[in-house]
Design a protein around this nucleic acid. Structure first.
Length: 813
RNA sequence: GCGGAUGUGGUGAAAUUGGUAUACACGCCAGACUUAGGAUCUGGUGCCUCACGGCGUGAAGGUUCAAGUCCUUUCAUCCGCACCA
């Protein structure tokens, strides 16, 4: 049979589509598998990363489908977001038109790969129906106090009049117009993800079996739990006077209470209320105020790259244990959003405080003593004994930590607290192409949620995208509305949601296709969730996966679902490289999936991608290896001539076969065994494919027609998830497509009469012997010594080791 | 700096988890068929050596009858976080 990929691939894609072959059964009693690849942003064309992602999930989905599972393998579109607005500015296209045209085009591209997606469950997150239920969630969260408004510093471009995400700021400049970004305090909506910090951390343990360790660690670090002491530093009377009696004290947090006697100054974040007061009331010199203002205008991110800077605030606080006066500084390295925006500074035992003290000539006091300490050079941050610490002198610092916390708590001076690095999730974007936040501002009632029956709040179509300002803000009528509570004139919130909100629950929406009156059906979700295998890029290790985990827990507490975690198993695929670098248009090293499919067919593309590297590793593109994949399919096709058609697995009397024939059968069933193992979790498709190559080679070394039929029947079964079109085409003529179901492994084919044993001398392989399987240990050792005469000559035999079915090791001296 | 990985032929990679290192491919070499081959088939291919043999999984030690695999130290590359007190 000639191999004509373009013809057979079109044919089978049509058949699968006509028969709705990939729609899951509605019988919710069958064993299920939910196989999900991260849905794409519809940027216009698919790239090799997509091809890899969907080929992996498709192979897994097809394997489980063939083995009797009810499989959900959906696809959709993460279709809100900035690129649509950028395209609108550049090409004068409406974001909606651009987005949905892209979706149509990319859908046809994906179809060419023969992916077994459920078509009936496809949706785009910009569809009004999806927005409707997302807005319902937001309202419920608002009502539960899980969503709130606050002012916070954001990156602001004064030219484009918009907020920019951190990654949209390039070296302090707007990535689009090059204007220098300023920090601007703006109101925005925040989701209280921090309420779930501890649970998000604790439940990582339940994911240990199914998630890569790397991702778990990254999430753990991101959540950043730390335990320490929180206490107040009281301002001196004089300082309180200076501050107009507006402040009495402020709170600081430390994980090193054992070093508290070493405090020689304290530092506030530039955004701290006391600092703001001093600046507003001009209580410092002009130079100092200017320096502070400059600090405030640098983004938190960029402060990290510069030198440590600070200004003495000319006020002081009282040390809670010694009663000594301590000067107060403002410092650029103190973060406003963590631990109250203020720190106690112990230059002798904290490297940051050390650098700052050195720069500004502030005093140091050693309170942890150790022979490894060298305070002339750097802060000493390790273990030691307390000195200069009053009643705690002589204690090991680990003990002193507990003792000092206890002292603070029993004297009501402070308390043990747990802090997290995780911040609340800001979801406001001053953008057009996003899901509107369904809240209304009323002069009388404040922030009021829209009535559920009025959802969805959809975007107006009649806007012009210029990139300046928010079109929802400037639209003549869109934001005008009446207050759902008091009925007076009110305005809609014009911010739209971060697109990470959409990707936080799309996997739930897939559970019930096209649900009109609810986001999804509870029974469907209970059946399909959690996702049995989630596949996507490592770049989503933190944000998307953390938000989705949070959303799942929040929806659970709102009564929508009953699970704690959305993704039971996670596979993070490696990047696709060419010439050692990530494929990108700017580097000009891309390979176009469409051209590849046109030249070799989808099956070759799929085979190469799964064969060239295991999924977790980077995949280096190699044109001649693609050619090699194509040749293997041709070879497989060519061997069909040896196969007698049959619609069931032939039975063979193994004992009547010769050695080559037996070997061929063993190789075939080894490949099947390997395949079953690989889909249990290692997903090393490359080894399965190699095993089928070995099996095909072994089959080609023999001529028994039944062995050929059986072997080919099994091989097409193993290969169907990987190269489906050609397998269905071949099976259609040979096996009436009856072989795409579970096949029992025949253990009898692994039984052999004789085994080959390696003879090693001191662990080094020297000889080989073939012995009858029934031979006992003594006889085998005897035989081993007989063939090793040359190696034993003039040596003393000390030890003889026999590892059954493997080897004999003779230890000589 | 902290954290996480990864280092095996010319290349992509295997190795049943402590038991014959380099399976399966790509590439290369030789041969066959052919008017021709960038098609197909067959054979060879870790390194050193004429050979006997020796060496060999980033490097150096260790445990073991036996180490790519376990332990210690170290180097390199990649990724993530980056003043979280």
């Amino acid at each position: 049979m000639d191999y004509n990929p373009s013809k057979i691939e079109k044919k089978w894609q049509q058949i699968w589509s006509d028969k709705k072959s990939f729609e899951p059964s509605s019988d919710l009693t069958k064993p299920k598998k939910y196989i999900l690849s991260m849905f794409p942003y519809p940027s216009g064309r698919i790239h090799m990363g997509h091809v890899r992602n969907y080929t992996i999930s498709d192979a897994i989905a097809r394997h489980h489908r063939n083995n009797g599972f009810n499989v959900l393998h959906p696809i959709g579109w993460d279709s809100f977001g900035m690129p649509a607005e950028n395209a609108a500015i550049k090409h004068k296209l409406h974001p909606k038109k651009w987005t949905y045209e892209n979706i149509d085009y990319m859908r046809s591209e994906l179809a060419g790969l023969g992916l077994s997606f459920s078509k009936e469950r496809e949706f785009a997150t910009s569809d009004p129906l999806y927005t409707k239920f997302e807005q319902e969630f937001i309202i419920k969260m608002f009502e539960e106090g899980l969503l709130y408004e606050k002012n916070q510093n954001v990156n602001w471009c004064p030219h484009d009049l918009t907020v920019l995400a951190n990654e949209q700021v390039e070296e302090d400049k707007c990535w689009r117009c090059g204007t220098t970004i300023v920090q601007k305090e703006m109101p925005g909506y925040y989701i209280k993800i921090t309420k779930y910090a501890q649970e998000l951390l604790d439940d990582l343990k339940t994911l240990e079996k199914g998630w890569p360790k790397q991702v778990l660690t990254m999430q753990e670090n991101w959540i950043g739990r730390s335990e320490g002491l929180e206490f107040s530093l009281a301002l001196s009377d004089k300082s309180q006077q200076k501050l107009g009696k507006k402040f009495e004290s402020y709170s600081v947090f430390t994980t090193r209470p054992d070093t508290i006697y070493g405090v020689t100054y304290t530092a506030l974040a530039p955004e701290h209320e006391i600092v703001k007061y001093l600046v507003e009331h001009k209580l410092l010199s002009d130079e100092k105020i200017e320096a502070i203002t400059n600090m405030q205008n640098v983004s938190e991110r960029d402060r990290g790259t510069g030198d440590k800077e600070g200004v003495s605030l000319e006020i002081e606080v009282i040390h809670p244990l010694t009663g000594k006066m301590i000067p107060v500084w403002v410092a650029n390295f103190v973060l406003a959003g963590y631990g109250g925006g203020a720190v106690m500074a112990v230059p002798s035992h904290d490297q940051r405080d050390y650098e700052f003290a050195t720069k500004y000539n502030l005093p140091m006091l050693e309170v942890i003593s150790s022979e490894n300490s060298n305070l002339a050079k750097e802060a000493y941050v390790d273990e030691g004994l307390l000195v200069n610490s009053g009643e705690f002198d002589g204690l090991k610092n680990s003990k002193a930590k507990k003792a000092i916390i206890h002292h603070f708590e029993s004297n009501d001076l402070g308390k043990k607290v747990i802090n997290y690095k995780l911040r609340d999730w800001g979801i406001s974007r001053q953008r057009y192409w996003g899901a509107p936040i369904p809240l209304i501002h009323c002069k009388n009632c404040g922030i009021v949620p829209e009535k559920l029956e009025n959802l969805p709040i959809t975007l107006p179509d009649d806007v012009e995208i210029t990139g300046e300002g928010n079109p929802l803000e400037t639209h003549p009528t869109w934001k005008q509305c009446t207050c759902p509570k008091c009925g007076s004139e009110a305005t809609r919130e014009t911010d739209t949601m971060d697109t990470f909100v959409q990707s936080s629950w799309y996997f739930l929406r897939y559970c019930t296709p096209n649900a009109q009156n609810s986001p999804f059906d509870g029974n469907d979700a209970a059946y399909w969730m959690g996702v049995d295998q989630y596949i996507g890029g490592i770049e989503h290790a933190i944000l998307h996966l953390l938000y989705a985990r949070f959303f799942t827990k929040a929806l659970r507490d709102l009564g929508y679902i009953e699970i704690d975690e959305p993704f039971n198993n996670l596979l993070t695929q490696g990047m696709v490289l060419k010439d050692g670098a990530k494929m990108s248009k700017s580097k000009g090293n891309t390979v176009d999936p469409d051209e590849l499919i046109q030249k070799y067919g989808a099956d070759t593309a799929r085979l190469f991608i799964l064969f060239a590297a295991p999924p977790v590793k980077e995949l280096e593109w190699n044109d001649s290896a693609v050619e090699g994949a194509f040749k293997y399919i041709k070879k497989l096709t060519d061997r069909a001539k040896n196969v007698t058609p049959t619609n069931k697995l032939v039975t063979i009397d193994h004992s009547t076969l010769d050695k080559q024939e037996k070997l061929a059968r063993a190789k075939v069933y080894e490949a099947l065994k390997k395949s079953n193992e690989v889909y249990q979790g290692s997903f090393a498709f490359n080894t399965v494919i190699a095993a089928t190559m070995e099996a095909l080679n072994a089959l080609s070394d023999q001529k028994h027609p039944d062995v050929w039929s059986e072997g080919y029947y099994v091989l097409l079964n193993i290969l169907e998830p990987i190269i489906p079109h050609v397998c269905w085409e071949l099976s259609d003529t040979l096996f009436a497509c009856e072989n795409f179901k579970e096949i029992t492994i025949l253990e009898e084919v692994f039984e052999v009469d004789s085994i080959v044993l390696a003879i090693t001398i001191n662990g080094k392989k020297r000889e080989e012997i073939e012995v009858s399987k029934s031979l006992d240990k003594e006889a085998i050792l005897e035989a081993a010594k007989n063939v090793s005469g040359k190696w034993l000559e003039g040596k003393v035999l000390i030890k003889e080791i026999y590892v059954p079915n493997k080897l004999v090791n003779l230890v000589v001296k």
